[in-house]
Design a binder for these strands. Sequence first.
DNA 1: ATGGTCGGCAACCGA
Length: 273
Amino acid sequence: MISLKIVTWNINSVRLRIGLVAKFLAEFKPDILCLQETKCPNDKFPEEPFKALGYGHIAFFGQKGYHGVATVSRIPIDSQNRRDFCNKGDARYLATTFSSEGAFAPVTVHNFYVPAGGDVPDVNANPKFAHKLEFIDEMTRCFSAGGDLATERQVLVGDLNIAPHQNDVWSHKQLLKVVSHTPVEVERLGKLQAAGRWHDVVRTHIPTDTKLFTWWSYRSRDWRSSNRGRRLDHIWASAALEGRSSNVRVIDAVRDWERPSDHAPVLAEFDVS
DNA sequence: ATGGTCGGCAACCGA
């Protein structure tokens, strides 16, 4: 069996938290780490610390100040693909393909940072919310039958900034009008999932009757006791890989490390042999 | 009902 351990983590500045990332890699040893919100221009990406830890294969798509995604790996990156969704000049999507030099059939990992969407869930009053929905719709077109990103063995990870199920938020009722859990967003995400025939690998292993969060706001004194979280970070897989997934978990202990990101890493393992 | 905290980068924007 050849196993691929994949982690997605919104790091909220890769340069500020490079020490946390190093600690995480040493402890959990994923094969592939997908980061979002790197907030790091390409010419300033901290490649050396990753290389020193054995993660010598690095792809990044960043910009100054905001957004940015990166995928770092212990195994070679066969190819990579950046794309400017919604043509706004935002660095929010990076795909990488792996085969370990032919040891297994190619697997493509799509790493997304979907726009948060601002505060008001109204496309007319709030251009950021309109942008978020347009971004999801463009994803849907790309992964539909005949779409240019559809392949057979693929994983989609990232901060999708939507918590679809009732138990993906601390209070379904209180968050129905809060951006990230509104019915219009949940419906759009469902369309993307259906069009791309994606399987929510995390909910395959941790059923929807269980509360599960990956993000807790900085604006609370004690995030764990108040536990007002949301599941914004996701790992999806195509049918070919969903049945080969295991070891799925949210590593929430990391949210308690010193100067943490407000997001916790999400981990899944796939038998790719 | 409201405000609460971060990071980047140099006044606020985005989350």
